[in-house]
Structure formats: C-alpha cells, structure tokens
Design a binder for these strands. Structure first.
Lengths: 190, 190
DNA sequence: TTATTAAGTGACACTAATGTCACTTTCGAT
DNA sequence: ATCGAAAGTGACATTAGTGTCACTTAATAA
C-alpha cells in the first residue's frame, strides 16, 4: 500500500512522555520531538495539527492504559488486601500523577479533536475517581476506614504520596512500607 | 536624583509569582511580565539580564520571606503544640511548594549572578530542612513520633499534603483537621 | 534654572519555533 | 513495470520571544 513508517505511535508517545515528565507542557516542541525520533518535523504534522492535539492524544493513550491495568487488579479480596494491592499499584504507576497534571494545562483550543479529547479525558477522570471511591466505600463498610474523614481527603492523600520526592534515596521497599504505615496508622506512637 | 520607578521589586515579584504558579517556568516571558506591569520590556532589562536571573532573584526573595516567617514561630511549646502550629503555618504558606519546585528548573547558566543565587538557594534549602529535622527530633525525644519511620518520609509526607488539590471545595478548617488527623493517627479505625 | 542621573521607551537585528506545501521516496496491488 | 497512496522531507513565510541601545523623560541637587 504505502511505505513503512519510521516510528510507531508507541515510539512517539513514549518520547512525548519522557519529554513532558522532564520539562513540562510548555517546554514540549515539535522540533525537539522530531529530533528525538530522528524524523523531520513536517512528518509529525501528517498526524497531528499541532502540539495541543498531539498531547491530548497522548493523554488519552496514557489514561486508557492506566485504567485498563487498574481494572485488571484483583477486586475480590477484603479491604486490607486491596489496600496493599492498590498502594503498590499506584507506586508502580507513579508517573500517572505527572500525566494527569498536564490535562488542565491544555489551552482552550480551536480544533474539534482537541476539545473532544478534553471532554473524554474528564470522563476518564470521573471514571477513575468512582473506582477509587468504591474502594473507600468498601473500607468504610468493613469499618476499617474512619468514617468522619471525607473521601476526597483520603483519596487526595493516597494520590499525593506517590509524588513525594525521595531525595535521600531511601530504598523503594522501605519507602513504600513507611508511607503505607503512615496512611494506615499515622506518624504518632500512641 | 532620578525619576520615580513605575513599579517596585515587590510589584515585579508578585506578578512573577502569579505567572509562575499559573503556568510554570517555561511559560514565563519578559514580554508577558512587562505587559502585566504596564511597562516596556526594555525597562526590565535595566535590572535583570534575562529570565533566569530574574527568577533566581525572585526565588531568593520568596525563600527569605518564608524562612523569616518560619523563624518567627513560637518554638517554646511541646511537640504537639508545635505540630499544630507548623501544620497550620505550612497551609498558610501553601504556595511555597510550587516555588521551591522551580529551583531545579533553572538551567545551568552562563552568568555569575545566577550561579551564585542557585548555590545560595540550595543553602537555604538545607537550612530549611535542618529546621524541620530539629522539629522531628523533638517529636522522637518526646516519644510521640514513631522511631522506625525515616525523617525523610515524615517530612516528605507533611510537605506533600499541602499540595493536595481540594477539588470538591471542602471547607479549609475541615480539610486541615482531616489531614492533621491522618498524619497523626492514620486513616484506619483500629 | 539647569545639570545630572536613573527610569523608561521603542526600534532593530536576531533566534527559535510554527504551520504549510510541493516534492521525493518507498511500498504493494494490479 | 508501473501506478496509487501513504510516509517523509526541506524550504518558505510567519510569529513570538530575545537582547541591545540610542534616545526621551522626570526627579532633584546644586
């Protein structure tokens, strides 16, 4: 039919992810991306009209991947089992945090494809939130989670902890178990 | 002596802060700043050679302000009293988080002033860290803080919590007391 | 009043990125 | 072999930001 592509969508999204995690939304340019992929800038315009469109497609791809993996987690165990599973999972997927933070940075766009993607992304976001909400509900039903603390705070805490910078290079296992301990029973001895 | 200035350093740093918090380091330009301050771009070059220099000066100013205020806190009470005081303080200064995150984003510069500021900033950072470390030590001495959890994790958790986005608009007082509760005694009932 | 001096301006040359498009390449189907 | 179609290129015009500088403006000390 036509000639072979020099790079797959996966290549492109992978490079995009690295660049965005390293330098943020504004620093991302077609010029840099093209040079990373060893293609001409012009060829990227064959698939994406501009940076907003490319990034919104990338975010769709990432969110999809994350939600699929999350859905594949074993939901049969009791709350404690799921808590351990989910914390570990979130730390494995720790860059999802930097990814979702990009969403609100996409400016109000002129092109339909971008706006469609943005609204789909917020649906994904709600979807994800509801899944985690279900998990918190389970904890409340089993009387493990304190009832007087709002769900938004609980989820916020859990998600925010994955972004704590481990400046001092504490080993991953100790790092995660310490955080799990604080989330469960706090910093205090008593 | 000479004509009056149209804007003070404070004006300039305030505008810079707003712009950086809203859109990040890369999106900051002299053009936008000048138009916010209603002056010509050229006049800003009278004081700062370029964006890196301006932002490094801004960060110095912010860190100084933060450390002064922190030093003014009452350090006489027991751990519990100081814990409450410090958490409240950190929430009041919640944008310090976005500010310190800018520091590593300043590229390796050619000008001496920028490099000097960067090294002073890392001194400030160490200074701040040591202050908080002292606070954690107190908690350990009073046997309030769990001894087996590394200080880096404890401080990381405390600092990260101020950045949790309160999407659902939970009232500030409830928000802070919930977070304090989790940090102290965890999410779990038992 | 006027000389001095710092503050501020806007035009100029430069750089880096954008978006477009006619053109070339390479594949497979006919 | 050759044609159609998608992939890829590089040159061009455009836009947005940078850094510089001769010049104008306005305060004030003499």
């Amino acid at each position: 039919m036509a000639r072979e592509r020099k790079y797959t969508d996966e290549d492109l999204f992978h490079a995009t992810k690295q660049m965005i995690i390293a330098d943020g939304y504004e620093a991302f340019t077609f010029s840099k991306l093209a040079s990373v992929l060893n293609v001409s800038r012009g060829s990227i315009y064959k698939y994406y009209e501009n940076k907003d469109e490319l990034i919104s497609e990338f975010l769709m791809y990432e969110m999809n991947r994350f939600l699929k993996k999350f859905n594949d987690l074993d939901k049969s165990g009791d709350f404690q089992t799921q808590f351990d599973l989910i914390i570990t999972f979130i730390f494995e997927q720790s860059n999802i945090h930097q990814v979702v933070e990009i969403i609100p940075q996409i400016p109000i766009s002129t092109t339909k494809r971008v706006e469609d993607n943005k609204s789909k992304l917020s649906e994904y976001y709600v979807d994800m939130y509801e899944q985690f909400q279900g998990f918190i509900e389970l904890g409340r039903k089993e009387n493990v989670i304190k009832n007087h603390i709002p769900t938004a705070v609980l989820l916020g805490m859990i998600f925010q902890t994955i972004a704590i910078p481990n400046h001092f290079g504490i080993p991953q296992a100790e790092w995660i178990s310490s955080i799990k301990e604080i989330l469960s029973h706090g910093m205090f001895e008593k």
